[in-house]
Design a protein around this nucleic acid. Structure first.
Lengths: 197, 197
DNA sequence: GTATGAATGTGATAATATCACAAGCAGGAA
DNA sequence: TTCCTGCTTGTGATATTATCACATTCATAC
């Protein structure tokens, strides 16, 4: 990890470090990012009368550890490590709550969940999933959402929700491939890549 | 089935009955629709050197029976009824082939598969899934696809594929609700709704 | 006809998700 | 306080979806 791009990250005092929506693929102080989102989520739940109980909060913290999608069973294992129940419903319930509350997104493509970078703001982001490292970035794009809405109109379909996901390669993985670490098709990189880069 | 809206369907001789993309939610002669798509898929496979073997063809026919998403195990059961193997890989392999060949789509939202209405034409349709009856319509929308592409650009993300899905209510289910058959939130209607309407 | 690779059949198992019910806990009403 | 109520959590069981490994069959080219 000595050559980790996160060495490029900004100093702690840096103000707005990166455009929020692209943060997953951008060098940033992940500790700070993590804390900021958690605080926002807490505020959102408090103001909305949503109970961010210990399991739920811990679940969110687990999701916030990295900008990637985590499976429910991976979350469950971590919850058990923290002393919570170890049966699937424990994780699924907490994850469902977070999604419902607008604090997490479900990543259908990989049957996983990822923390929302804009807790509480009703939005339907484009989720960009890197096939190299598993990171997930959230891109605002009212554009895509609007286009789906428009696609529904001529069919007289009453749209209630959308899932918009893209798969491909993030800039860091592309750079790695270019450096000859991969062969251009390269095997997926470490699935447990750490926090921000 | 006596009050099936498909009674409204066009007469057999009707020429181009409905805009292709909206066909799932539109009154049409489904037998003809089914046959047309199957023929197109056969032609596409033939011209591309893709082997549409008996299981694969049967699988496509099963998907074509209705404009909805079918689970792999449901397909598997039908395949077994037709004398094919009854172990999961039988269905998954055939379904994977069809998706790969551009003759079917995977519907991530419901872990299902649905026949493609434009076999062989490389496209990333918006899949509109009715929560009332389970029907799935394919809407062209280069617009949404383009918007996702644009969302990826500022993140320097190299987009390789997309899943764009919308859930909501189809016109027929909306009409049913309006007629007082439902309560406005109504339980999902029969999951095994027949072919076209 | 025989070698070859693709496709299929089959048993086993992995990964994901839900159900049902008991127990605990927070808040308000009596 | 005590009880009631509804939400939340724990737990065992089970359902659903998906993949692996390996033997066999089949189509095709040689």
């Amino acid at each position: 990890m000595a050559d980790d791009p996160s060495s490029k990250r900004h100093a702690e005092g840096a103000p707005e470090q990166a455009p929020d929506q692209a943060i997953a693929f951008t060098a940033h102080d992940h500790r700070q990012c993590q804390a900021r989102i958690l605080a926002r989520a807490e505020a959102h739940c408090a103001s909305g009368g949503l109970r961010l109980t210990p399991v739920r909060r811990q679940t969110l913290e687990i999701l916030l550890e990295a900008h990637r999608a985590m499976g429910a069973y991976e979350v469950l294992e971590r919850l058990a490590d923290h002393g919570f129940g170890s049966q699937p419903p424990v994780a699924y319930r907490a994850l469902d709550f977070l999604v419902e509350a607008g604090c997490a997104h479900r990543v259908r493509r990989v049957n996983g969940y990822t923390a929302c970078m804009h807790p509480g703001e009703r939005h339907d982001p484009v989720l960009l999933i890197c096939e190299g490292c598993g990171m997930v970035a959230e891109s605002p794009s009212g554009g895509a959402r609007r286009a789906v809405g428009q696609a529904a109109v001529p069919l007289e379909f009453q749209l209630e929700g959308v899932n918009i996901e893209g798969v491909g390669m993030c800039p860091a993985c592309l750079a790695d491939d270019g450096e000859g670490i991969g062969d251009g098709k390269g095997a997926p990189r470490s699935k447990d890549a750490g926090g921000g880069r």
